[in-house]
Structure formats: C-alpha cells, structure tokens
C-alpha cells in the first residue's frame, strides 16, 4: 500500500476519533478540566478589587500553571482521554469494528493518539494561555498590552508549548497503560505520586519524572519550599526532545502491543 494511502488512513482514523472525543463524555471531561483554570482566573479577576502588585502576576500565574494545570487538571485530563482511547472502545465493545477495517492496527493506534493529542493540546494549551491573558487583563486598562509587549507573548507561547509537550508525554504513558491494565487509575495515581514528590527527589531521580523536564521549560521558576531539593533545570536542548522521545517510544510500544492484541469482550 502506498505511503499516500497510509497518510489518508491516518487522517481518517484521527478525524473519526477526534469527532468521537469531541462529542463524547471523554472530550467533555477533558474540556471541564481544561476550562477550570480559566474559570478560576475569571473569578479572581472579578472578585479582587485591587490589581495584583506588578512583579507578582507572572509569579502567581506560574504557581497556578505548575500546581493546578500541569500537576492536576492536565494530568487528569490526559488520564481520561488517552486512558480510554483503546480501553474505552473495549468496554463499549466497539474495538472490533476498527480492527475489521482494512487499516493496519498501528495506524489506528497512531491516529487515535494524534486525535487525543490535538484535543488535549488545544484545550489545555489554549485555555492556559487564555487564563494567563485574563490574569494580565485584570490588572487594569492597558496592562495586557503592556505585559504582552514586555515578553508576555513569549511566556504565553512557552506555556502553550509546555502543555503540548506534557500532553504528548503523559498521553503516551496513559495510552500504553490503557492497553496493559484494566483499571488505569491505580498506576495513574502511582505516577502522579512520583511526579508530585519530584521536587524533594535528588538530582538523578528528578530526571526520571516528566514534570522535571516540563518545569525546566516554564518561563517563570517557582520556589518549591524549604524541603525542596534544588536541582539544575534541564537545558532546553534536552528538555524539549526528552518528552518527545518518551512519547515516540511509548507509542511504538502501544503499536507493537496492538499488533498482538486479541479482542475478547467475554473477559470484561
């Protein structure tokens, strides 16, 4: 089969999955998690009568980005969306329809992963940037324009990029987990625990957590308290490819696994 045909098939699978996610419960849940920081920022800007002191805005948003978006909402959104890409079809007993179509299974997995990545990347990246703009806008008339002129655009792009990398990395992890375990929530909690304690781990172990690479790319560094073990941030040339390499490796593993997968709804 020609390469062009494969690309077409990939696009068709991705589009089909994107539509399923967009109108389904999984996509709605991801949107709920993605929109949460924006709602919070709008609430803060509405309730707060005085502007936040100048230097603190960037720092406060960095805290929100690190503590709420990266470690909670984006993580849970990825668990939900990517964990159910294969597992959800198995529970709904619809996986065999895809497997019976004349498309290689690897293409199906890749298409599904790309659809999940597009949805979560756009939702979490987009709403994070919007939250950032809302917080800047809440500081008074013209403050948004001034902040954007003073490096705000770069920061917004960096936040979007970090979200995209996080979705790629975590997404690949949960895609594989969704294939290997029946209930991905248990390993998801274990991984969350590992990522959550990353700040107290020694330098060598820090590098085993995806969050370390993502935080190294964040435009503003946040002080993690007195119990944190301070480690050198990973250089950009390593911090960007590391989540991508992880994602490629895990998607390849998922593709290998799906090749040998037998659909047996009876054991569900």
């Amino acid at each position: 089969m020609s390469r062009e045909k494969r690309w077409k098939q990939l696009g068709a699978v991705a589009f089909l999955e994107l539509r399923r996610l967009f109108f389904g419960r999984d996509g709605l849940t991801a949107f709920f998690f993605a929109v949460l920081p924006l709602v919070l920022m709008t609430l803060v800007v509405t309730i707060r009568r005085q502007p936040i002191p100048g230097g603190r805005v960037e720092h406060d948003f960095a805290i929100l980005f690190q503590n709420l978006i990266l470690q909670v909402t984006l993580y849970l959104g990825c668990v939900y969306v990517f964990g159910s890409l294969i597992r959800g079809e198995q529970i709904a007993k619809t996986l065999h329809f895809l497997f019976l179509s004349p498309v290689r299974r690897e293409v199906i997995v890749l298409g599904k992963y790309l659809a999940g990545l597009v949805l979560t990347g756009a939702a979490f990246g987009g709403f994070s940037v919007l939250s950032y703009f809302v917080l800047l806008y809440g500081q008074g008339t013209g403050s948004l324009t001034a902040a954007l002129g003073a490096g705000g655009v770069g920061h917004a792009a960096a936040y979007f990029g970090v979200c995209l990398l996080a979705c790629a990395g975590y997404g690949a992890v949960f895609l594989v987990l969704g294939q290997w375990v029946k209930n991905p929530i248990v390993p998801a909690i274990a991984i969350w625990g590992w990522e959550h304690i990353n700040f107290v781990l020694p330098e060598v172990l820090k590098r085993l957590g995806l969050i370390h690479y993502l935080l190294s790319l964040s435009p503003v560094t946040v002080d993690e308290g007195f119990i944190a073990v301070i480690g050198e941030p990973v250089p950009v040339w390593l911090a960007i490819p590391a989540p991508l390499v992880l994602a490629v490796g895990l998607v390849a593993l998922a593709a290998w696994k799906v090749r040998h997968m037998e659909v047996d709804y009876g054991v569900e």
């Binding site: 949460l36 919070l40 406060d60 503590n67 709420l68």
Partner: peptide, 8 residues
Amino acid sequence: IPAAIGRI
C-alpha cells in the same frame, strides 16, 4: 483539585 484551587 480543591487543594490546588484553595492554595491558588
């Protein structure tokens, strides 16, 4: 989630 929201 409420823990993170509360802190922020």
